[in-house]
Amino acid sequence: MNILVCVKQVLAAAVRIFPDADSHWICSESDEYVMNRFDEFAVEAALLLRETMPAGRVDVISVGPERAEAVIRRAMGMGADNGIHVVTETHGYMDPAFTAALMAAYVRNRDYDLILTGVMSEDDMNGQTGPMMAEMLCLPCATAVIHMEMLGASAVYVEREMEGGVRDALEIQLPALLSVQSGIHQPRYPSLSRMLRANRHSIEMIRAEFPDVPTSAVHVARTAFPGKIRAGCFLEGSASEKAARLLKILQARLLIR
């Protein structure tokens, strides 16, 4: 049972970002990068599956510039066996079809039974990379998986999370691709000893130039701050002045006695 997990490096959620006219993408106040939070759940799910399946391995793959190596190491620190880094030059937006094609090119002719992705990336929020990759590899696919269980060695039982507390249950033949919803398990922290081992372990590096990769089809024309849909009155002054002001506003509206 060999599992591949796709992990993406993204800016930490707390980093302030701004539209960037030059790159048509974003610029940030600092460059603190982390593993896409949704991918931590995918890594955790893979590690738990490996425990139930003897003789299997968990590999992680990431497409990104040199700095992306950090998330591969982190996943190895969590317990993944091997890391693959598809090195790109792009720092701006990358079309998910392009990312998916790069990873699909790596996967082709390799023996993965299961490929896991996060449900979406925190920065691009496309939710496309996984299902596109599945299609490119002609694999069955299910998204937003909130529960999974192996059915022997050739199938997996999954529950997809739908709106309104409804789950869609499926039995899927392997090999397959699943996108994992958050909350499926608590992702573990990398252990120090594993982190040290991961740092010694080599990562397979691949240049992102496969001949059959389509040219990027969707581009970003510009980015901007979103418009407001409510008054959005910012309270001014010291924290205690704001507290007093908020109380007055709520009292005036009879929302607090």
Binding site: L11, A13, I17, F18, P19, W25, I26, Y93, E122, D123, D124, M125, A217, V218, H219, V220, A221, R222, T223, A224, F225, P226
Partner: peptide, 12 residues
């Protein structure tokens, strides 16, 4: 994009 902090205009 980015948790709703920004919006992006996509073209193709």
């Amino acid at each position: 994009i980015c948790g709703g902090k920004l919006v992006a205009d996509m073209v193709t």
